[in-house]
């Protein structure tokens, strides 16, 4: 679509550091983290992209650098176009990104969710707390090294724990739904099967 191709070009006139991003559908741009807010503001004010429909993050696995990418999907309620803006977090250990709450009030909960699931700190966020897991939860579940079954963790309410002895345990994957692993075609790895994440002398118990 010629109308949307122009957006990247127009953006590049103002921000030469913006580069096109590989995408199968929408127009997408890569932006350095420092300029994300300026670019989003330009998109909102100059190009009519007035609604932030989605904000999320991708973890490219442990050891990959840059490890975390924050992805914004911005939509226009007037010309009905989408654009994807992606920014890699500079630090792989303590990922951070400037907040977009100043541009869209709706970014508040999306950023809290990205913090909850990936541990990405949004600088300047007014109220960066966990949103889906409970406040004391020590892990970031959508990071790639975190197992699907979870890690043994105490529950938040001491009175209920005292009465029931319940805690968050690693879910039994044996006999559970069949799950598959991502990646290249390797039948023994990719075949969906009940995952055994119980620990043994070969596989160590995950540290809490």
């Amino acid at each position: 679509m010629p109308a949307t191709v122009a957006v990247t070009t127009l953006l590049q006139e103002k921000f030469p550091q913006v580069t096109p991003r590989a995408s199968l559908d929408l127009e997408a741009v890569n932006v350095p983290p420092a300029d994300v807010i300026a670019v989003l503001k330009a998109l909102r004010d100059d190009h009519g992209f007035d609604m932030l429909v989605d904000l999320t993050a991708i973890d490219w696995a442990e050891g990959v650098s840059p490890r975390f990418t924050v992805v914004y999907h911005v939509f226009s309620t007037t010309h009905h176009g989408y654009i994807r803006v992606a920014a890699n977090c500079a630090n792989d250990e303590l990922p951070a990104m400037p907040t977009a709450v100043g541009l869209w009030a709706g970014a508040n909960w999306h950023e809290r969710e990205a913090y909850d699931m990936f541990g990405i700190k949004f600088d300047g966020h007014p109220d960066l707390r966990r949103i889906l897991m409970w406040d004391e939860y020590p892990h970031f579940p959508l990071r790639k090294e975190f197992p699907l079954a979870g890690i043994e963790t105490p529950l938040p309410d001491p009175d209920v724990v005292a009465e029931t002895g319940a805690k968050a345990i690693a879910a039994p994957m044996m006999g559970g739904p069949f799950v598959a692993a991502t990646g290249e075609i390797n039948l023994t790895e990719a075949e969906p099967r009940a995952k055994d994440e119980s620990w043994s002398e070969v596989r160590e118990k995950p540290k809490a």
Binding site: L132, M133, H139, P141, F146, P147, L148, A149, G150, I151, V160, T164, A166, A168, I169, A171, P172, M173, G176, P177
Partner: peptide
């Protein structure tokens, strides 16, 4: 029993608490 949600966030059966 936790059903199809064998994951980090789901209690694996309400009989663990009541």
């Amino acid at each position: 029993s936790g059903g199809m949600y064998r994951s980090y966030a789901t209690l694996q059966g309400v009989d663990r608490i009541i």
